[in-house]
């Protein structure tokens, strides 16, 4: 009997040690975002979300051994739907099969995830998890011409001290998504000119696709992985 208990305890201890060294996983379960204090733009917007916005997951080996997996589920789609509902007077969600020409909209916004990265405390010799997400927003006018191509780079960080490992990673991911929302609320109109595409507004002035990279410098390596070089504070908001 005693030998059995000892064996069981040993197995539990070894399992605990292995799991402590073996990475972790995080699942964002139906996160909710606060209602933003913002005035709606008088624009009828069609929002088309890319497939990865509806289901995004990522797995990575840190230092070639610890496997970390993150599962956003439909959290990104949820964020954009909710955010656009608060930012525009009229929002229509389009599926891949919907033809925007047949819908009464002033502008079409296509969103996708360009890049995703995270760091664990061992990588940065800190107590924090960090998450970087870069979304891409392509804005089209009524005629179907692309008027803006805007990368939205967001960053979130959370300590492991107050939260457990996967909880801290989840919090960092949530903060990164909130950071993206904050950036879009502040700069979407200025960066894309979407406010001027409304039926009541003056004709759009932005005629050529823009790719503004001022918020983040991104380098793309040969293996098609992207790395973020900067985040930052938005002085316009201060």
């Amino acid at each position: 009997m005693r030998a059995t208990i000892r064996t069981t305890l040993s197995v539990v201890a070894v399992s605990a040690l292995l799991s402590a060294c073996g990475g972790g996983s995080m699942t964002l379960q139906s996160p909710s975002f606060p209602t933003p204090l913002v005035e709606k733009l008088p624009v009828k917007v069609g929002l088309r979300l890319s497939p990865e916005m509806e289901q995004f997951s990522h797995e990575e080996k840190v230092f070639g051994r610890e496997t970390w997996s993150v599962d956003f589920g439909d959290a990104n789609a949820r964020l954009f739907r909710q955010l656009f509902d608060h930012m525009f007077t009229d929002v229509t969600i389009l599926t891949a099969d919907d033809n925007p020409d047949l819908l009464p909209i002033d502008a079409l916004v296509e969103t996708s995830i360009d890049a995703f990265e995270f760091s664990v405390p061992e990588q940065t010799s800190s107590n924090s998890f960090a998450v970087w997400i870069r979304y891409r927003l392509k804005v089209y006018d009524k005629r179907g011409d692309m008027v803006a191509n805007w990368p939205v780079s967001a960053y979130g960080k959370s300590e492991t001290k107050a939260l457990g490992g996967s909880d801290a990673l989840e919090r960092a991911a949530l903060l990164a998504m909130r950071d993206a929302a904050a950036l879009m609320i502040m700069k979407l109109d200025a960066e894309t000119g979407i406010g001027s595409l409304g039926a009541m507004a003056a004709p759009a002035t932005a005629e050529t696709p823009q790719d503004s990279e001022e918020d983040v410098k991104v380098s793309v390596s040969s293996d098609n992985t992207s790395s973020f070089a900067a985040g930052g504070i938005d002085q316009d908001a201060i």
């Binding site: 204090l37 908001a237 201060i238």
Partner: peptide
């Protein structure tokens, strides 16, 4: 939200009047 997020929170008191004008 979103005016006290890490990106948007005012860094100095001189940003307060502008913040107060937000809807």
């Amino acid at each position: 939200f979103p005016w006290f997020e890490p990106r948007t929170a005012p860094a100095e008191t001189k940003g307060l009047p502008k913040l107060m004008e937000r809807p």
